[in-house]
Nucleic acid binder design. Structure first.
Lengths: 221, 221
DNA sequence: CTAAATCTTAACCTTTTCTTAACCATTTTC
DNA sequence: GAAAATGGTTAAGAAAAGGTTAAGATTTAG
C-alpha cells in the first residue's frame, strides 16, 4: 500500500485529491503548509509527494530542494514554462497544471510509483535457488514447491525486489499492509519471518534472510 | 554522453528536435517510422526515447508496449486525456503535447535521465580507504567488510558527512539520537568511538578519527 | 455455518548491543 | 610539578532486539 503525501493549502482542492486517491487504495497523509510538510517528512517515509507551489510560510520550491529520495509531482496553477522548468530542474519529477483531469493525475502517479518499485515486471523474482512464482502463494526452493501464506509471500516479494538492500522493519510493514488491513506489528513480522525460514529450511538448510540488527532485513549476499 | 532516440516521421519537427538536443551534447539517433525504431532498438541500447504516436506502419502505442527498460517520453499532437492515460499506463514515463516549449522538453528529458542515474548509482560516503555502504549498513576498510552496530554506523556517518569539520560531542549525541531513543551520554560516546577505532584497526593500523581536546571529533586530514 | 487456514498475541529464550563504572593515560591549569 | 579535567580502554551487567513456540482470535473457503 503506497503512502502519498498531499501538500496543498486550499482545503477544497485538497479534499478532492484526497478522496480521489483514497478510492485508489493509496494511504494518504495531509499537509496544509510547507512547514507541516517538512515536519511529516522528517518522521515518515513516503512513496510520493503531491506538491502545490504556493504555500503559506515555506513555498513549494524550497521543499523540492530539501527532498532527495522521494518522487515529487508538482500541482500548480502556474502555467509558465519558466516555473515548470525551474521545478523540474531542481528535483521535481513531473509538473501538472491546474485545473487537471483526474485520470491524468492518477496515470502520472502510477508512473512515479512504477519507477520506484518496478512492480509490474512480469518475470518471476529469483534469488539464488529461490524463485517466487507470480501466483501469490508459491515459492520454489531448489525447484521444490513450498506454499506460502499471503503475508509471507508479500514479505518475501519485497525482500526479493530489493535484493541486496536492507529494508527497515517499518518500511516492510508499510509495504505489505493493504487497505483493509493496517497490518501487523513488529512482533507479528518476526513470527512471519520465522515461519518463512522454517519453510525454506525444510527443503534446504540455508538461511536466505539476514537480520540486520536494529534496522531490518535483507537477503544474504 | 547520453544516447537519445527520436522517433518522428514529420521531417521538419524531427530536425528541430534533433538540433535542439545536439546543442545539449546528447548523442542523437533517428527513426522516421515505427519499424525503423524497432530495428534500432534491437541493436542499440538507448538512455531515452522521444516518441511520436502517429507513425507509418507501426504506431507509437505498440512501441511503448515492446520497450521495457528504456524511459519513453511521448510527443504527440493528441491532447485528449484518454490518449495520455493510455500511454502513461502502458509504460510511457511522460507525455508532452505539441506544440511544446523547448525548455520544458529539455527539462523533462533531464528528469528521465536523472532517474536513470539514481537507480544505478547509489553514492556511498567515502574517506581515504573507508567507505560506508549505504545499502547494507557496513563499513569497508581497504575493501574489507567490517560490521558496525547501528550506533557506530550513525556516528561514523555524521563524521564522514562533515569530513574536515569538527563535530562537538553534544552535537554528535543529538545527531545520532532518534525520536524514541534520547540516546547515550558522553561516556557511552567515547566507548562507541573506541569500538569503531578497534574495529578499523584490526584491518588497518591507522587512526581515522581524531579527538579534538575539549571539543569533539573529526576525521583526520 | 462450519472447518480449516492464517494471523496475532504473548511468553520465554538467545543473542547482540549499549551503558555503566573502574582504572589508566594524557593534557591543561595553577 | 601536582591537581584537575578530559580522553581511552576494558569488562560486566543491563537493556534491547531477534527467534521460537503455542494458544487463541480472526479470516477465508467450502
Amino acid at each position: 500500500m503506497y503512502k502519498i503525501l498531499i501538500v496543498e493549502d486550499d482545503i477544497s482542492i485538497h479534499n478532492v485529491i484526497e478522496e480521489l486517491l483514497k478510492k485508489q487504495n493509496y494511504k494518504i497523509y495531509n499537509a496544509y503548509s510547507g512547514t507541516e510538510a517538512l515536519l511529516l517528512l522528517e518522521k515518515e517515509e513516503f512513496d510520493l509527494i503531491l506538491l502545490d507551489l504556493m504555500l503559506p510560510a515555506i513555498n513549494g520550491e524550497e521543499i523540492i530542494e530539501k527532498v532527495k529520495d522521494t518522487p515529487i509531482i508538482v500541482l500548480s496553477a502556474k502555467i509558465s514554462p519558466e516555473d515548470k522548468v525551474k521545478c523540474l530542474k531542481t528535483g521535481a519529477n513531473d509538473y501538472i497544471t491546474k485545473p487537471f483531469v483526474a485520470s491524468e493525475l492518477l496515470a502520472r502517479i502510477e508512473v512515479q510509483l512504477r519507477q520506484k518499485n518496478k512492480n509490474n515486471i512480469k518475470e518471476n523474482l529469483k534469488y539464488k535457488d529461490l524463485e517466487l512464482l507470480n501466483d501469490n502463494h508459491t515459492l520454489c526452493v531448489s525447484n521444490e514447491k513450498v506454499s506460502l501464506t499471503r503475508t509471507e509471500y508479500a514479505i518475501l516479494k519485497q525482500l526479493l525486489l530489493n535484493q541486496s538492500q536492507i529494508i527497515s522493519k517499518n518500511r516492510l510493514l508499510d509495504l505489505i499492509s493493504t487497505d483493509t488491513d493496517d497490518c501487523c506489528d513488529e512482533n507479528s513480522l518476526k513470527v512471519h519471518i520465522s515461519n518463512i525460514r522454517r519453510k525454506t529450511k525444510k527443503v534446504k538448510d540455508e538461511n536466505y534472510i539476514e537480520s540486520v540488527w536494529g534496522i531490518g532485513f535483507k537477503m544474504y549476499d
